[in-house]
């Protein structure tokens, strides 16, 4: 389950990340994480606003995501949680007329800085989508190797990484004998884990998940949720979910969104049992949504 040590951290000097949010007690600071051999990154949003044309869909969000934690974003449809997620890896701007303002800082580095290369951002921030999206003509192996191939990694190194990623995604034992058969031949749950393997194969700094289980059956959902727990040992994970039980099961912290605003964020348990805002309470107790 451990990444190959040779390929981790070609560490460039990262600036010391100041912990700007004292009101949110991080249960592990970045330096502590590094000391534990965990290398998830800290993500912070500063006054993030997102627009679709003239319509402001997200109104100035400030939010910290702790390293090596799973942070869930919940809220009713249209609350802006998916938009926030898509702003983090700059996928939001793929939609015609859409743009965003504010800062998205990954360990202090601004994803939106003017000289930043879009493809570098997206390479460094992995994303798993609602529906499984294996590339239709590629084999299982080639699907996982797709991102590596783009970066020019081939041969033994690539196959080692594919194996590592498939093991990491808990799929290795199911597919190791048919790596050359097509990726779309797998079941829905396997396809989604294949996509997760594809995402972690390139060793992203951060993994975004946009309702990753909404197209899966209960058993497949359970597998993916277990996987998320394992992955947070190495990665910082942000997950958007419609489903509060899922947030309760997988997330360390939970952020509740409503109508484009961040209503409340805190440890998952306290959000669900003892929310400070009445709107959060109404939502988590199922009064609307």
């Amino acid at each position: 389950m451990t990444p190959e040590p040779t390929t981790t951290l070609t560490d460039v000097d990262l600036p010391e990340t100041p912990l700007t949010t004292p009101e949110v007690p991080a249960h592990e600071s970045a330096s502590e994480a590094a000391a534990n051999g965990k290398n998830g990154r800290r993500l912070s949003l500063q006054d993030l606003k997102a627009f679709y044309g003239d319509n402001e869909a997200v109104h100035g969000i400030n939010l910290e995501y702790n390293p090596n934690e799973v942070t869930a974003m919940i809220g009713p449809s249209g609350c802006g949680k998916s938009t926030v997620l898509r702003c983090i890896n700059r996928m939001h701007e793929e939609i015609p007329g859409a743009y965003s303002t504010g800062k998205v800082l990954l360990d202090g580095l601004d994803v939106y800085a003017s000289d930043v290369d879009l493809t570098a951002v997206r390479r460094a921030i992995g994303m798993v989508f609602q529906k499984p999206t294996p590339f239709p003509t590629l084999s299982i192996f080639d699907n996982v190797a797709a991102g590596l191939k783009l970066a020019g990694i081939k041969g033994v190194e690539a196959s080692d990484r594919v194996e590592w990623a498939l093991k990491g995604a808990g799929l290795w034992n199911e597919v190791k004998d048919r790596l050359n058969s097509p990726g779309i031949g797998l079941s829905g749950g396997q396809q989604q884990r294949l996509c997760i393997a594809r995402t972690i194969a390139v060793e992203p700094e951060l993994i975004l998940m946009d309702e990753p289980c909404s197209a899966l059956d209960p058993i497949a959902t359970l597998r993916v949720e277990e996987l998320i727990q394992e992955l947070k040992e190495q990665f910082t994970i942000v997950i958007v979910t419609h489903n509060m039980q899922q947030a309760a099961r997988v997330a360390d912290r939970t952020a509740f969104f409503l109508l484009g605003d961040l209503v409340e964020v805190g440890p998952t348990e306290s959000i669900f049992t003892n929310p400070t805002d009445s709107r959060t309470e109404e939502y988590v107790s199922g009064k609307f949504g």
Binding site: P3, T7, T8, L9, T10, D11, V12, D13, L14, P15, N39, L106, G108, L109, D110, V111, A113, D115, V116, D117, A120, V121, R123, A124, L148, A151, G152, I153, V202, E203, E205
Partner: peptide, 13 residues
């Protein structure tokens, strides 16, 4: 300060 392009990637170029 290093920019994202230079610093952001650990595994891959």
């Amino acid at each position: 300060a290093p920019t994202f392009n230079e610093a952001g990637l650990r595994g891959l170029p």
